[in-house]
């Protein structure tokens, strides 16, 4: 297990290799379907984005509401391929990495390679376990979307596996 401090700058990203297990420390942003759709619209219209994507990681996740006394409820990854149609403009804006579950399209794999990004996976359906790794959570954009709002998360020891590295190697092709 390799401990990684976020954000993931380019140097850190290129050092990662497919199949490695990482523990993440630092800041993540959640975003799923509707947030992606809105971000893409904003980029098209050249409006300012609610968050800077430079070197940041988007976590494909729509958490459950926090029970009293916790920053967040259950918060596992959702299916990444649904974000494929929206991902390239975000990589162009400097997005460093993504966390989700499942395969990406060949186009996205190529784009990850050419932007020196990284795609990480977390265990699908392990939302309660992952909840314990989130120390703080706050909504930073699209509050009206409910569970699909963009949350800023502060994580400690958040476990992921490198699924596509900056050379475009895909874990799902190698098992």
């Amino acid at each position: 297990m390799i401990k990684i401090e976020l954000p993931l700058d380019r140097k850190k990203r290129v050092s990662l290799k497919t199949g490695q297990r990482l523990l993440l420390y630092g800041k993540l942003y959640t975003a799923r379907d509707m947030a992606h759709k809105r971000l893409r619209e904003m980029i098209r219209k050249r409006s300012p984005l609610p968050i800077s994507l430079k070197g940041e990681i988007l976590y494909y996740c729509g958490p459950t509401p926090p029970p009293p006394g916790r920053p967040i409820g259950s918060c596992g990854p959702t299916t990444s391929s649904r974000m494929d149609p929206f991902t390239i403009p975000l990589l162009k804006k400097g997005l460093g990495g993504m966390i989700g579950k499942g395969r990406r399209s060949p186009d996205i794999r190529r784009a990850i390679k050419s932007h020196r990004g990284v795609y990480l996976i977390a265990t699908g359906g392990a939302g309660a376990l992952l909840s314990g790794k989130v120390k703080r959570a706050s909504i930073v954009a699209f509050r009206d979307l409910g569970p699909e709002a963009i949350y800023e998360l502060e994580v400690e020891g958040f476990p992921v596996i490198v699924a596509i590295d900056s050379r475009g190697r895909d874990i799902y092709d190698e098992k």
């Binding site: 729509g62 958490p63 459950t64 259950s74 359906g125 309660a128």
Partner: peptide
């Protein structure tokens, strides 16, 4: 492990409820 945590901490097993 996740199932155990969900049960003891009264959290949903998965965020997709």
């Amino acid at each position: 492990d996740n199932a155990r945590i969900a049960k003891t901490e009264r959290l949903p097993i998965c965020q997709d409820t």
